[in-house]
Computed example of a mutant assay.
Amino acid sequence: MKKALLIALSLGVSVTATTTMAANVDPETDRAQQVDYFKAKLPKVDVADYKDGAYIYSADKKAQWEAIEEFPPYTDAVDAGEAAWNKDKAVYEKCFGSDVTQIRAKYPYFDNAANTVVTLEGAINKCRTDNGLKEYKWEKGDLANVSGYLAYQARGQQINVKIDSEGAKAAYNKGREIYLTPRGQLNLSCAKCHTYNSGRLARSNILSPSVGHTTHFPVYRAGNQFLSTLHNRYVGCMKNMRATPFKAQSEEFKNLEFFEAYISNGLEINGPGYRE
């Protein structure tokens, strides 16, 4: 059971049985094994570079991306996020404190009292509604812009998700199951694309590795030309699988984010990011 996930992924077989067998894995052992899997696939790539996503697979693509980052197209969105933050600054400071550089790195985390994963975007909207402000629309717009502003302020800090309770461990395993379970008409899982087939092409785009997936969100995608949240990407991926997606900030997607963030522990936050 200890190596069941890696064996299944390395062979490219269905992981349904693996999910059942390993429904309660040790998160840290699991995280280390997944990192080792990518290290074996990418022996010349430093683990710290996994924060760069799909660009670790192509020197040419990475050079193009680095050139774009000199004058990133998401600058206006980050500025809009800063303006939105400052507009309701007094409210936000009640919820998050006055140091905007210290907010992003705290999320996601497991709230034992509420028995749920708390994401940054969820916390932003809860702060608003708890203080009489209108909730932002999920997935993009003001919510993504404010999240992008906070991510930009936190650049260089490391992801450090903690699992220190049975509730948190259960949330990790539930997120892991979402990641492993094939779904939709194409019968694809997140793992099929972002672990086993990471580095390969899908619709001319390179599939990114799961380790490091959460470091650069929210993301400005060239095809969309706006910042979108991680859960917006989850929705899009499930639609690509021809599956009915869970809703943004559903328990399923919050657990999936918790799982992906934990396996990316130790990597630098470099959001918001640009992707083709």
Rank of each mutant, 00 (worst) to 15 (best):
Pro72Phe: 09
Pro73Ile: 01
Thr75Ala: 05
Asp79Val: 00
Ala80Gly: 09
Ala80Glu: 12
Ala80Phe: 02
Gly81Val: 08
Glu82Tyr: 06
Ala83His: 14
Trp85Met: 08
Trp85Gly: 06
Asn86Gln: 10
Asn86Phe: 10
Asp88Leu: 10
Asp88Gly: 05
Val91Arg: 12
Val91Asn: 10
Val91Phe: 10
Tyr92Cys: 05
Cys95Met: 07
Cys95Lys: 15
Cys95Tyr: 13
Phe96Gln: 11
Gly97Pro: 09
Asp99Leu: 02
Val100Gly: 07
Val100Trp: 08
Val100Asn: 10
Thr101Arg: 15
Arg104Met: 02
Ala105Arg: 15
Tyr107Pro: 01
Tyr109Val: 01
Tyr109Thr: 03
Phe110Ala: 02
Phe110Val: 02
Asp111His: 07
Asn112His: 05
Asn112Phe: 05
Ala114Arg: 13
Thr116Met: 05
Thr116Pro: 04
Val117Pro: 07
Val117Arg: 01
Val117Lys: 03
Val118Trp: 00
Val118Met: 07
Glu121Trp: 00
Glu121Met: 08
Glu121Asp: 11
Glu121Lys: 14
Glu121Tyr: 01
Gly122Arg: 14
Gly122Phe: 03
Ala123His: 12
Ala123Pro: 13
Ala123Met: 09
Ala123Asp: 14
Ala123Tyr: 14
Ile124Gly: 06
Asn125Ile: 04
Lys126Gly: 00
Cys127Glu: 10
Arg128Cys: 04
Arg128Ala: 02
Asn131Tyr: 14
Gly132Asn: 10
Lys134Val: 06
Tyr136Ile: 06
Lys137Ile: 05
Trp138Ile: 07
Glu139Phe: 07
Gly141Tyr: 05
Leu143Trp: 14
Leu143Arg: 14
Leu143His: 13
Ala144Val: 11
Asn145Cys: 05
Ser147Cys: 01
Tyr149Asn: 02
Tyr149Gly: 06
Tyr149Trp: 12
Ala151Val: 02
Tyr152Ile: 00
Ala154Gly: 01
Gly156Met: 12
Gly156His: 14
Gln158Lys: 15
Asn160Ser: 10
Lys162Tyr: 12
Lys162Val: 14
Ile163Tyr: 12
Asp164Trp: 08
Ser165Gly: 04
Ser165Tyr: 13
Glu166His: 11
Glu166Gly: 11
Ala168Trp: 13
Lys169Asn: 11
Lys169Val: 05
Ala170Leu: 14
Ala170Thr: 15
Ala171Ile: 04
Ala171Gln: 09
Ala171Tyr: 04
Tyr172Phe: 13
Tyr172Met: 14
Asn173Phe: 04
Lys174Pro: 00
Lys174Trp: 02
Arg176Ala: 08
Ile178Asn: 08
Ile178Phe: 09
Ile178Gln: 03
Pro182Gln: 06
Arg183Gln: 10
Gln185Leu: 12
Gln185Glu: 13
